[in-house]
Design a protein around this nucleic acid. Sequence first.
DNA 1: CCCACGTGTTGCAAAAAACGCAACACCTAA
DNA 2: TTAGGTGTTGCGTTTTTTGCAACACGTGGG
Lengths: 303, 303
Amino acid sequence: MRHLLVPKYVEQIARNGSLRSAAEELGITASALNRRILGLEEELGVEIFERHPSGLRPNIAGEILLKHFRDQIADMERVKSSIADISGQRAGHINIATTREVVQYFLPALIKESLIDFPAVTFGVDLLERGEAELSLVDNTNDIAIVFEPLRIKELQPVYSGEQQMFVVMSDKHPLAKKETVRIYECLDYALLLPKRPEGIRRMLDIAAEKTDTTLIPVLESNSLDLLRLMSQDSDALSFCLAINLRPNLKEDNLVAVPLLTPGIAPGALIAGHLRGRTLPVAAARFLETVNKELATKFAVIV
Amino acid sequence: MRHLLVPKYVEQIARNGSLRSAAEELGITASALNRRILGLEEELGVEIFERHPSGLRPNIAGEILLKHFRDQIADMERVKSSIADISGQRAGHINIATTREVVQYFLPALIKESLIDFPAVTFGVDLLERGEAELSLVDNTNDIAIVFEPLRIKELQPVYSGEQQMFVVMSDKHPLAKKETVRIYECLDYALLLPKRPEGIRRMLDIAAEKTDTTLIPVLESNSLDLLRLMSQDSDALSFCLAINLRPNLKEDNLVAVPLLTPGIAPGALIAGHLRGRTLPVAAARFLETVNKELATKFAVIV
DNA sequence: CCCACGTGTTGCAAAAAACGCAACACCTAA
DNA sequence: TTAGGTGTTGCGTTTTTTGCAACACGTGGG
C-alpha cells in the first residue's frame, strides 16, 4: 500500500531503533528515510524521535503517532482482507503467537486443513516464551495468541478458554504405567524430565509439588519437549505433558500417558484469543473461530 | 498530512460523486485524480468505484475502504490534537452539529468562553434538520452533536442526556401571562406561532395536542424561532420554546414564558454526544465535557 | 591517545513519480 | 443534433524522491 509507506517507515525505525538498519530492511538508503522523517516532523510541527548517538527513539509524541500508525497498518490489512473476502477470494495472512507446549500436534493439523480449503490464506507461527506471546499482540506483530496460563490477560481477549489436564508420560513397562491416575508424590521416586522454568507447564508442576511440601529435582531440564518425551522411552524417567500436546500414537514409541492428579490445585487454562479491542481481519477471525470450535470439542470450556 | 492524500481524494470523490468536481475542490486536475484512483485500484487488485456516465459511485469494496479512510482521517486529527495537547498548545478544530432549537443562546456563550481560554481551538457549527445532525457524525463531517429528540440513537453515544421543559412565550399583557403553568388546550383559543414540521419541538407539541384530541392550527409556521418569538410581542399570539432556548432577558421585549404542562407525555430529551465507538480528538472531547457540565448544572440529567 | 565503527545529516545530480494540458470516447437531456 | 456532463489516455514538463558520497558527532577498544 503506497500511501502507508510513511507509517511503515516510522514503524520500522521504532522497531529497529536506528535509521540505517531500518533503511536497510526497507530497501532504501538512510538519507531517503531520514528526509521522510524530517518531512513528517515538519508537517506535524513536532519532533517525533529523540536523536541519540546510538540511534532514534520515539518521544512521547512519537509514541502516540506510532500507536496510530500501527493501528492504521493493521486496519488496512483488515480492510484488504474484507475486500478479498467479499470478492470471494478469501485471502490474507495470519500471524499466530504461541508457546511450545501448545503447537506440537494441534496447530499443524488445523493449518494444513486451512491451506487446503483456502490456499490464498498464508500463515506465520511465532514460538515465544511465556508472556511474550501476549505482548506480541500489542504491536500487531501477531494477530492470534494460543497460550497456556497467560501472564498478561488485560491485553488478551479470550475466544476460547479451557482447562488442560496434565499427563505423566513414561515407558509402558514402568511400574506406574498400569495405574489409572498418578499423583505428584508418586513421581518423586523416579528420575524426572522437566521443561525449563519459564514454561507454563513447569510452573504448574512446581505449584503442585509445593502443595505436597516437596521440590521437583529434574535429571534433565530442557525446552525441547520432544527430547523429554523420547528420554522416557526405555527408561524409568518420567516426563510431563499437556492433554493438547499428547502424541496421538504413543504406543508406537512404547510409551503411555497417565493423568496426573493435582487435588486442590486448579488445572492450568489454555487460552486462544486476540488483542482486546481489536477487530481481526476476516481470515484471522475465521481461523480463530475454527481453533475455538476444535478446542471446544476436544476439551472442556470454562467461563 | 501528505500521506493521507489518497484517503482524502477517495473521500472527496465519494462525497461529490464525480471525479471532475472532486478534482476541482482538491485543486488538481481530473486526470491526476483519475490516475491516483486507478493506481489505488491496481494496488488493491479490485475496483472500488462503479463507473456511471453520471460519475463515480463506491461499490461494496469501495464502501468498506471509504469507511476505513474516513476513520483514518478522523484518527489522524485526533492524533494531531493529542500531540498538540501534550506540547501544551491545546490546538484543534471542533465541528458541532446541532439544530435551531438548541444553539441560540447556549452554544455561543460556551464557544466564546473556549475561544478566550484556548485561542488555538477553532470551531465549526452546522445547523441541520432533525435527524441530519446524527447522520453527519457517521462520515466524520462533525465531531459533536447537540440535538433535541434525536431520530437515530444507534449511532449517537450520549454524554449528556436530559429533559427539556417546554415554555409558552407570550406578551406580558396576555390573559395567560399571570398563570403559573399552562396546558395545551388553554392555548387553542389564541393564534399559534409554530416551528415548522421536522423540528423536534414541533413534534412534541403535535403529540401533546393529539393526546387531548385536538390539532394545532398555526397562523404562522416558520423555522426561524426568532421570528416566532418576536411575533408574540404586542399580540395575543403564542409561541413555544425549549428551556435551553429561552431568551435570558425576555422582560425587555415585554414577553413572559410560562411552563407548558403536558401530563402523560414524557418531556423531550436533549442529548449531547458523539459517534458511538469513536474516540474524539482531545479538544473536542474536552469541549463536549464542558457542554455536559454546563447542561448538567442548568438542567436535570436523566439516565 | 587515536582509530574504527556506529550513529544522523546534508549537497548535488540522476531517476522516478506526479502533474497539467489537450484530445478523445461515451452518455444524457434539451 | 447539439451542448454539457462524465471518465480516460498520450505526451511533455514539473516536482518530488532517491542514491551516492561526504561530513559531523559520539563511543568503545587497543
